[in-house]
C-alpha cells in the first residue's frame, strides 16, 4: 500500500479566510495503487499512452512550440495526442520553458485539478536549471522541486520534432508503467507544498482541493 509520509489526516488550508474555509474540502490527496491483475493494468496503460490529452496552457516561450504540433506539418493527432482546454480532462501538462513565480501558482493550481494518472513534460532548459534566467529574482530554477516531472526535453528552444520525439518517449514510459508522478506528488506532498509556499508569498488558495 502506498502511503503518504505525513501522519496528519487533514490539511490546514491556512491561506483561506474564515468564510472561504467551508467552500473547500480539507482532505489530503490519496495515492492509488495499480490494478491487482497485471494484464488489466497493462491494458489501462496502453490506453493511457495512446490517448494523450495535452492541457492547453502555455506557460512560457516554449508554448509557441506546441501550436505547430497540431498543424499539417507535424500532425500530433496521428499518435493520439489532442489538445484539451480544461485541466479536469487533460492528462499531460507541458511546461513550456521558464516559469515565473506568478505562473508557478497557476501551474500548481492546474496540476492539482488534473485527474490522475497525470504526466508532466518539462520543455526547454529553464525548468531544469534556470537556463538564461539562472539569476532572476522571480523565476523558479528547478521545476521538480514544485511538481513531479516525468520527462525532460532540453534545448533553447527545442523544435517541435523534438517535442514529438519526447511524446513518443513518454508513450513508451507510460506503457512500461514508469510514470507515476501523481503518486509521487502524494507521497511527498508536504515537501512539495513547503517548497511551493517558500516561493509563492501570497498563498491565498486551498492546500489541495479544488
Amino acid at each position: 500500500m502506498i502511503k503518504s509520509l505525513s501522519t496528519e489526516t487533514t490539511l490546514e488550508n491556512a491561506g483561506l479566510s474564515a468564510e472561504e474555509q467551508d467552500l473547500f474540502s480539507n482532505a489530503r490527496p490519496q495515492a492509488y495503487e495499480p490494478y491487482p491483475i497485471k494484464a488489466v493494468e497493462d491494458f489501462a496503460n496502453w490506453c493511457r499512452a495512446n490517448s494523450l490529452w495535452l492541457l492547453a496552457f502555455g506557460t512560457g516561450c516554449g508554448a509557441i512550440e506546441l501550436r505547430p504540433l497540431m498543424t499539417a506539418r507535424f500532425d500530433a493527432n496521428r499518435i493520439g495526442v489532442a489538445g484539451r482546454p480544461t485541466p479536469r480532462q487533460s492528462s499531460v501538462f507541458i511546461i513550456g520553458g521558464y516559469s515565473s513565480v506568478k505562473t508557478l501558482k497557476r501551474i500548481v493550481r492546474s496540476y492539482e485539478q488534473m485527474q490522475g494518472p497525470k504526466f508532466v513534460i518539462s520543455l526547454g532548459i529553464c525548468p531544469i536549471n534556470g537556463g538564461m534566467y539562472w539569476d532572476s529574482y522571480n523565476t523558479i530554477k528547478r521545476l521538480d522541486q514544485y511538481i513531479p516531472v516525468d520527462l525532460y526535453i532540453t534545448g533553447c528552444m527545442p523544435r517541435p520534432e523534438v517535442l514529438v520525439g519526447g511524446l513518443l518517449e513518454l508513450k513508451k514510459m507510460i506503457k512500461e508503467g514508469r510514470c507515476d508522478g501523481a503518486n509521487r506528488y502524494v507521497e511527498n506532498f508536504d515537501w512539495y507544498k513547503a517548497n511551493q509556499k517558500k516561493v509563492i508569498k501570497n498563498w491565498n488558495m486551498p492546500d489541495y482541493n479544488w
Binding site: R48, Q115, G116
Partner: peptide, 10 residues
C-alpha cells in the same frame, strides 16, 4: 477507455 481507467474523480 482511457477516461474510464482514470484513477481519480471529483
Amino acid at each position: 477507455l482511457k477516461n474510464f481507467f482514470k484513477r481519480t474523480a471529483v
